[in-house]
Design a protein around this nucleic acid. Structure first.
Lengths: 155, 155
DNA sequence: ATTACTGCAAAAGATTTGCACTAGG
DNA sequence: CCTAGTGCAAATCTTTTGCAGTAAT
């Protein structure tokens, strides 16, 4: 939902230097429709940009979260943190089976953020609204590669 | 908010055996006002129950989350998962400085859960609504033991 | 020129797992 | 009895850190 230039612009405005690595990471974030982890971004970019280190991906994502350009959703039943490039208030539905996250539009979330802003006396800089749902492969849950291993709501 | 017997009862109903370890962990969860991590529960119980292993604490918390008796909130700026014994819908405000979490009453959250239930076609079993706030030591932020180390909203 | 950034290797640290023993029902 | 649960030690894996070299401004 955020464009590459919005992300890089936010970094620049916050005083960060614009390196090719950061530009590539912002581009990847803007292009992806899912909720990537540091590892998945690294894997994607390593193909065309083989020197890119995982460390840099972690650091850049961290910087973007700090300035409020993206959000950190926590894990989705796996062990890795998922990031959210879409900072429009919405609900995230996580599948604990295949570890994917789907966005759900919500009018109530906006009210929620107002409540938080009022209670804390400042604007909401970051947060996570995540619920767990069944597999996102709606048409055929059997297609979820992890369905067999399913044990329940662990997280 | 949940009582010890509600937690142990939920475990029994779900077919889990009632061991002294599980009973102790449920008691600790019911007694605490905060949002404990596995480690903090282990440390608390080890004093009177020195043989209790961290592994068992993890397993029991995991079982409780699976049956929907408690919730997993993810981390709060630290590296550990915080658990929520209060499953009444509400907002959690996490301090990224001292890593504590405060409950905030909210009418909008109930509407949120209705939206999720409608979109998924099932009841909400687990989820997390966490926003980040300034230090919870409202009267004197300087008292927050981590204030000095503060670097920003990292998560 | 400065100073931040990158990338590597190593460290850190939370959580999980394998397994033999123990105990709840 | 029988099977689930416990506890230990080791393993796993993500994320962080130290540091020397590199590059943005």
């Amino acid at each position: 939902m955020a464009t590459q230039s919005e992300l890089t612009g936010a970094l620049r405005e916050a005083g960060f230097r614009l390196t090719p690595q950061r530009t590539a990471i912002c581009a990847a974030l803007a292009a992806r429709e899912d909720h990537p982890t540091a590892q998945s971004i690294h894997e994607e970019l390593k193909q065309e940009y083989e020197s890119l280190s995982l460390t840099t991906v972690y650091q850049t994502l961290d910087s973007l979260v700090r300035i409020g350009a993206i959000r950190n959703l926590g894990t989705a039943g796996d062990d890795s943190v998922h990031y959210e490039p879409n900072i429009e208030p919405h609900i995230n539905l996580a599948c604990l089976t295949c570890h994917r996250i789907r966005d759900l539009e919500s009018t109530a979330v906006r009210e929620l953020e107002r409540e938080v802003a009022q209670a804390t006396g400042s604007n909401v800089l970051s947060g996570r609204v995540v619920y767990y749902s069944d597999c996102l492969v709606e048409s055929d849950p059997g297609k979820c590669p992890y369905s067999q291993a399913r044990t329940g709501v662990t997280e």
